[in-house]
Amino acid sequence: MHQFAITPLGSETLTGSAFQFTNSALWMLIVLGAILLFMWGGMKRQLVPGRWQASVEAITGFVDNITRANIGAEGRKYLPWVLTAFLFILFSNWIGAMPFGIVPAAHPFTVTSQFSITGVLSITSFAIVLVVGFWKHGLHFFTLFVPKDTPFVLKLLIAPIEFVSFMVRPFSLGLRPFVAMFAGHILLDVFGNFVVQGLNSHSVLGYGISGLCFVFVVGVNALELLVGAIQAYVFALLTALYINDAVNLH
């Protein structure tokens, strides 16, 4: 569990202050730097893009497609936030999966394995949904919970269910990327431990298990990259879907 622990940088103990600099803050800044460096490649603005500019345009085009397909023409207004969340989750997940641990004294840290981080992301998305919904539709926004063309009795039953499912959204949205990273890194930790313990056992069976687990670690690492991208995509997709509810109701 050490890989998930937050340690203070520049001081001895965690003080609970908002201004304390921690390894988590450091890796957030590294993620920020990586995102800015990468996106800076999109500023070349050439008519025929190079590889770098083409990658940036591919990512913005990908997220733009998500918002446009789910929200419609108005989706571009919400693209900056969806792209911000997408890039932050994607880069955090992937930078957390990089083998920085082989560098002495470097302690890799996955920012998105903290639900205090993913929770803020999901609550921000949820807050946008609420603000946009009530801004555009006022109290009509509550009709979101009442399906159209349904018998009154069913409406009575369905509205509370819809309401609960709506209120669960920020939790599911925030827990999903956190759980994916948390579980993936624990899996890596467990198999990594098996590799070391198998080697330490000095037995043929131990070496066999060790080799098998090493293959697993490689596989899980590859899977982790895939999951990291999928979680970023899912977060962007669900944010766009929820914003669509607020913009267009049903």
Partner: peptide, 17 residues
């Protein structure tokens, strides 16, 4: 112990992005 600093740095980073 960490939520305040987590949120501060996260908000700074998200605002920058």
């Amino acid at each position: 112990l960490v939520y305040q600093s987590q949120w501060l740095w996260l908000l700074l980073v998200l605002a920058a992005i």
